[in-house]
């Protein structure tokens, strides 16, 4: 059942160019503008700036899939009352959610794999395959808070507001967390706020994997676990509120 649900979720996402195209092409496009010009530089820490930025944009790409996929996807499903008919079937809600998460993980994998292959070739970045595998594994495994953020948006806002809210939340988060340019190049007040943001600690997972200076893995994971709990709580509250309105 999970397999069938995931397969059809994937089909649905794949056939929506607004989702599939943006999640695959946008990170490559952004890396071309913000990453490639600096790809052959070396950071003060001795790490290739290309590798550092490629890791950053990989983190951005996963968040892109999670925040937009769930944020807009769930809101649209609610708006079109797709959830209503599903609720009357024997499909357990847990399976429906697991299938969505699996689909998003597969899309994320496609998205960052394509980005990394492109970045390594176009930017002439020399890092071993093992490094990039490590980046992928860490980013997929640590994506839970972004899933939570997506669900929190998807259950809180309507289908028309969802794209705007997802952008307003995720783009500033990604900027202020140093995903588009290193933290050191951001305005002072942003540098002070950044370390409290979830995406900053998510980025640390990727930076640590390419050998850039990063906080200890345990610290990142603790922050991410805390934000996962917070976002899931917000999502659950919004879900319950809707539940009591629609189904009580």
């Amino acid at each position: 059942m999970l397999l069938a649900q995931t397969r059809s979720d994937f089909r649905m996402r794949w056939r929506l160019p607004a989702f599939s195209l943006t999640s695959l092409a946008l990170p490559i496009l952004f890396f071309t503008f913000f990453g490639l010009p600096f790809a052959r530089n070396t950071l003060p820490s001795g790490v290739s700036e290309g590798a550092y930025l490629l890791a950053s944009f990989a983190a951005y790409a996963v968040g892109n899939v999670m925040v937009y996929g769930f944020g807009i996807g769930v809101a649209v499903e609610r708006g079109q009352k797709i959830d209503l008919l599903l609720r009357a079937t024997p499909l357990p809600p847990g399976v429906a959610i697991a299938a969505k998460v699996l689909t998003a993980l597969i899309f994320s994998l496609f998205s960052i794999s394509a980005l990394i292959v492109y970045g390594v070739i176009a930017g002439g970045i020399h890092q071993g395959v093992a490094t990039w595998v490590n980046v992928i594994v860490r980013l997929l495994a640590g994506s839970l808070p972004l899933v939570g953020l997506g669900f929190a948006i998807g259950y809180s806002v309507g289908p028309n507001a969802a794209p705007a809210v997802a952008n307003l939340v995720y783009l500033p988060l990604a900027f202020a967390s140093g995903l588009f340019m290193p933290m050191s190049q951001l305005p002072g007040f942003v540098q002070r706020i950044g370390p409290y943001l979830p995406v900053y600690h998510y980025g640390q997972l990727a930076w640590g994997a390419v050998g850039a200076p990063a906080e200890p893995l345990g610290v990142s994971l603790a922050w991410l676990a805390g934000y996962t709990a917070l976002f899931m709580l917000i999502a659950l509250r919004a879900y319950r509120r809707e539940e009591s309105r629609k189904f009580a």
């Binding site: 059809s8 009352k81 209503l84 008919l85 079937t89």
Partner: peptide, 13 residues
């Protein structure tokens, strides 16, 4: 089996 008056479904499958 249930058929509801007010429900939607995806258009792309």
């Amino acid at each position: 089996g249930v058929m509801l008056q007010e429900s939607g479904t995806t258009g792309v499958l």
